[in-house]
Design a binder for these strands. Structure first.
Lengths: 202, 202
DNA sequence: ACTTGATGTGTGCGCTGTCCACACCCCTGC
DNA sequence: GCAGGGGTGTGGACAGCGCACACATCAAGT
């Protein structure tokens, strides 16, 4: 990619610029109620320019959601790396990492589970990223079961309970219900994860 | 209220009809992306008629959210009634009832935590209903602490963990991640609540 | 009967998402 | 070293939207 050009007919990296403007708008109002035209104005291009990069508004949201799931999978893997796979610590760090991702990337998080993207079929990029994240969680729990530290109950059930818990804490945190302090939010996630894991121990 | 009048200039209960049409639309598309004009068409009134009952679109959503919180508080209180206050069973039933509410009233649930309603200040009805629901949860946990069956940890922390868990399971269930069967969804909620409670026992 | 206030109608404004024909300009093949 | 082609941005158009405002209708109280 050539260095940023200014005052040229072509923008340089309009796709990225539109995504960033959208994230900014989501951060400001909490919801993707921006208009594509306003985004274009902010970026300094014609109203129809973004349509060269996104089929429609939903496709833009899908791109943001996919980016979010990629960031989430990264965060989960990184956190998991700090503890022995299959250990209870590993499990707890997965939970904390889920919530930390939401606290660090609230704008992404707010888009990722939007109902209008529930059918990910038209967006293979989104579908892949989402299942990848889900797999990291699932295999973390399965490993803990295999190493015998967690009940040998049906894995899917444990995944749903764990995922549900961290997802709920993340959602409420992003909604501002737990205050603005990331440290406090992570502390909540940590103690909640510990409690749930205690309840799931073999 | 007089009996339903048809073919009259005045509708009879337009406010209720608009809310119901909105709920129907939310059920159909998962998000409140309907137009107020379409709602009016469905109900058979002029595009501007709903504005007699709702200041704007957000106020309509706020009314739905408030109704949702009232239904939630009812459901929580009813479920709580089936077990001795302060007992672990009582706690579990609260958790199950939260998720059951979401499974039974998904359209309400989808609206209740929308970011555009996060500032409930302009909607005192919504504010009251929301804090009432929250109080039922909080006092349930406090009672369990006082009867000595749950750790005497800071109550707020326990509330956040518990609320987060049931909220996450509810959200994922409403998003269709756990399939359509209400029985299965409640089973997940039940076993997850039991696990968390085990982890929180004194 | 007359007024009055609540409720529904009709019309208009500015904005939106999206489409289309056209302008521009970088890159590649000759 | 130049022609032109394809990817990218422009400008204008259209239908539909949220919402405002002036007017119509009707029930209820005097």
């Amino acid at each position: 990619m050539p260095p940023r050009r200014r005052n040229t007919y072509h923008h340089g990296d309009l796709r990225r610029a539109v995504i960033d403007a959208a994230l900014q708008a989501i951060r400001e109002q909490g919801s993707p109620d921006f208009s594509l035209r306003a985004l274009a104005r902010r970026v300094g291009v014609a109203p129809s320019a973004p349509y060269r990069h996104f089929e429609d508004k939903r496709a833009l949201l899908a791109a943001i959601a996919a980016e979010g799931f990629r960031l989430l999978a990264d965060g989960l893997r990184k956190a998991a790396g700090t503890a022995r796979p299959g250990s209870l610590d590993h499990l707890r760090e997965l939970g904390v990492a889920y919530v930390r991702f939401a606290a660090r990337h609230p704008a992404h998080f707010r888009i990722m589970f939007r109902p209008e993207l529930a059918d990910k079929t038209p967006y293979p990029e989104l579908l892949d990223a989402a299942s990848d994240s889900f797999d990291v969680l699932t295999s973390g729990i399965r490993a803990a079961q295999e190493s015998g530290v967690v009940r040998p109950e049906e894995t899917g059930r444990l995944v749903r309970a764990s995922w549900g818990m961290v997802h709920g804490i993340a959602a409420l945190a992003v909604a501002g219900q737990f205050g603005r302090s990331r440290a406090k939010i992570e502390a909540i996630a940590r103690s909640a994860s510990e409690a749930l894991i205690r309840g799931l121990e073999a």
